[in-house]
Computed example of a mutant assay.
Amino acid sequence: MEKQIVCINWGTTYGAPYINRLYRMVRANITPPFRFVAFTDVTEGVDPEIECFDLPEMPGFMPKRTIGKWPKSRLWAKELADLKGSFLFMDLDVAITGSLDPFFEFGDEQDVVLARNVAKPLHKLGQTSIYRMPVGALASLQEMFAADPQGVADKYRFEQHFVTKNAPNGIKFWPSGWVRHYRIECIPAFPLNYFLEPRQPKNARVVIFAGGLNPTDAILGQYNDKNPHLPPLQHIKRALGSKRKLKALRQFMWPATWVKRVWEDASLEQEPSSPDT
């Protein structure tokens, strides 16, 4: 059976380079046949092997004063281009480090399966950086959201919390260890973060970059571009001059060479094989 992988791109944060990079990571870590579908507002520069469709209509309107990725609700529609059956969705800023095949074999085809939100483990919340569901499984949630986008966003803040609490037949989580959270599970805890480089989790298949810290930051060894990487002593000096000293001290990390390798390998153009080889 053909595996279906879906991503979504809107605005100027990511664009064609991220779509292409995700596609190449998928291609290197999946057993064919598969199709890679991008719902996107930009197609220039996108690899020709990628199937591009216009962004589905935004239900209701985009809520304000919320940090959740509510444009993802476009993918909850009853119909989604020509897709049939279940699909695997991934954010554009994940790092794929193992085979994706088990994500299509786990559980029942009708299940809605999310990553586990490790930031609040006791709350049993889902993370939608990588999830699988049948087309239309969350159509009723899209209707609920469209009826009062701002009210829903104000109540749940994150679209993944809304999905976790309201999916019609509940949700399941990927097996432990398949999906890892970079900021929480890869950066050594303070004070070891000053001595050890961020680690690549053993047996992880996908590493997600939730919470504002993305792969390009990890490669540079910084939490964000407002606080660029500094050598340890200089970082400590900067942290002691900030208002939240302890938090700033903990936000030191070395550049992650393994993220650089995964990211750059997927950025390289791969020439088609010669007919004579």
Rank of each mutant, 00 (worst) to 15 (best):
residue 15 G to Y: 02
residue 22 L to W: 10
residue 26 V to A: 13
residue 28 A to V: 02
residue 32 P to A: 06
residue 33 P to S: 06
residue 33 P to T: 09
residue 45 G to T: 01
residue 46 V to W: 07
residue 47 D to T: 03
residue 49 E to W: 09
residue 51 E to D: 14
residue 52 C to N: 08
residue 56 P to F: 04
residue 59 P to S: 02
residue 59 P to C: 01
residue 60 G to Y: 01
residue 65 R to A: 13
residue 65 R to H: 14
residue 66 T to M: 00
residue 66 T to E: 00
residue 69 K to S: 14
residue 73 S to P: 07
residue 77 A to G: 12
residue 80 L to I: 04
residue 80 L to C: 06
residue 84 K to H: 12
residue 85 G to V: 02
residue 90 M to K: 06
residue 90 M to Y: 07
residue 101 D to R: 03
residue 101 D to N: 09
residue 106 F to Q: 15
residue 108 D to C: 12
residue 110 Q to K: 15
residue 110 Q to D: 15
residue 117 N to M: 05
residue 124 K to R: 14
residue 125 L to P: 03
residue 126 G to W: 07
residue 134 P to R: 07
residue 136 G to R: 10
residue 139 A to F: 07
residue 140 S to D: 14
residue 146 A to N: 02
residue 148 D to Q: 04
residue 148 D to I: 05
residue 151 G to L: 03
residue 153 A to I: 00
residue 155 K to F: 12
residue 159 E to K: 00
residue 163 V to A: 01
residue 169 N to Y: 11
residue 171 I to P: 08
residue 172 K to P: 07
residue 179 V to P: 09
residue 185 E to D: 07
residue 186 C to W: 02
residue 189 A to F: 09
residue 190 F to G: 05
residue 192 L to V: 06
residue 198 P to E: 02
residue 202 K to V: 10
residue 204 A to D: 09
residue 205 R to S: 13
residue 206 V to P: 10
residue 209 F to D: 08
residue 221 G to R: 00
residue 223 Y to V: 09
residue 227 N to G: 10
residue 228 P to F: 02
residue 231 P to S: 05
residue 232 P to T: 03
residue 233 L to N: 03
residue 240 L to Q: 11
residue 242 S to R: 05
residue 243 K to T: 11
residue 246 L to F: 14
residue 246 L to Q: 14
residue 246 L to A: 15
residue 251 Q to Y: 05
residue 260 K to M: 03
residue 262 V to E: 08
residue 262 V to I: 11
residue 267 S to H: 09
residue 269 E to N: 13
residue 269 E to M: 12
residue 270 Q to F: 04
residue 272 P to R: 04
residue 273 S to A: 15
residue 274 S to C: 11
residue 274 S to D: 15
